[in-house]
Amino acid sequence: MAKQKIVVKVTMSGDKKSRKALKIAVGISGVESASFVGSDKDQIAVTGEGIDSVELTRLLRKRVGYTELVSVGPVEDKKPAESKPAESKPAAVQMQFPPYDYYYPGYGGYYYAVY
């Protein structure tokens, strides 16, 4: 199977509902990543292999609210147009300092008499 990208629009009224919707989307089998997209961050883009888009929509409608399936399609691979040979640059040397060893003197034992 090929990777696919599913975009669903979810009506979310608050931060708690949006976290719940994202948690539901990630919990479905085959999902590799999920993120908010769109101008209002009201759409969830889910990518992975073998994801059931109908099941995703049904679960979100049942647990969060109104959900609309926007698109289902293959993941587009981003390939560089033309690669130029990389110029070798000298590696930057980073100095490492030893960690600080803080010394806190212990407090002496305080004795008190009970009368």
Rank of each mutant, 00 (worst) to 15 (best):
G65C: 04
S35D: 09
V75M: 04
V64R: 05
I24S: 07
R58K: 15
V70E: 06
L59A: 12
P74C: 05
G48R: 05
D42Q: 02
V26G: 14
V54M: 13
E55A: 15
V72P: 04
S33V: 11
G73C: 09
A45Q: 06
S35L: 06
G50L: 03
V31E: 06
V54D: 15
K78C: 08
P80K: 02
A45E: 05
K41D: 00
Y66W: 11
V31T: 09
V54Q: 14
V75Y: 02
P80Q: 06
K62S: 09
L56A: 08
D40T: 10
A45V: 04
I44W: 02
R61Y: 00
G50R: 12
G65L: 06
D52H: 01
G27K: 07
V46E: 05
D40G: 10
V26F: 14
K78V: 10
E32D: 10
T57M: 15
R63S: 14
R58H: 00
L60V: 02
I28L: 13
G30Y: 10
G30A: 05
S53R: 07
K79I: 14
G73K: 09
A34R: 03
K78L: 11
I51V: 08
V37A: 06
G27P: 01
G27Q: 07
D77V: 08
V75D: 15
V37Y: 03
L59P: 01
G73M: 07
I44P: 03
G50P: 09
E76M: 03
E68F: 02
G65Y: 02
G48N: 07
V64N: 02
V64C: 02
V72G: 08
V72L: 04
A25K: 01
E32H: 09
L59H: 10
T57S: 11
E32R: 12
A34P: 15
D40F: 12
E68S: 10
R61I: 12
Y66L: 13
P74T: 08
S33W: 01
V37S: 03
I24T: 00
R58I: 13
E49K: 12
E49A: 11
I51F: 04
D40W: 10
V54N: 15
T47P: 00
V26M: 13
I28Q: 05
E55V: 15
K79W: 00
Y66G: 08
F36V: 09
T57V: 14
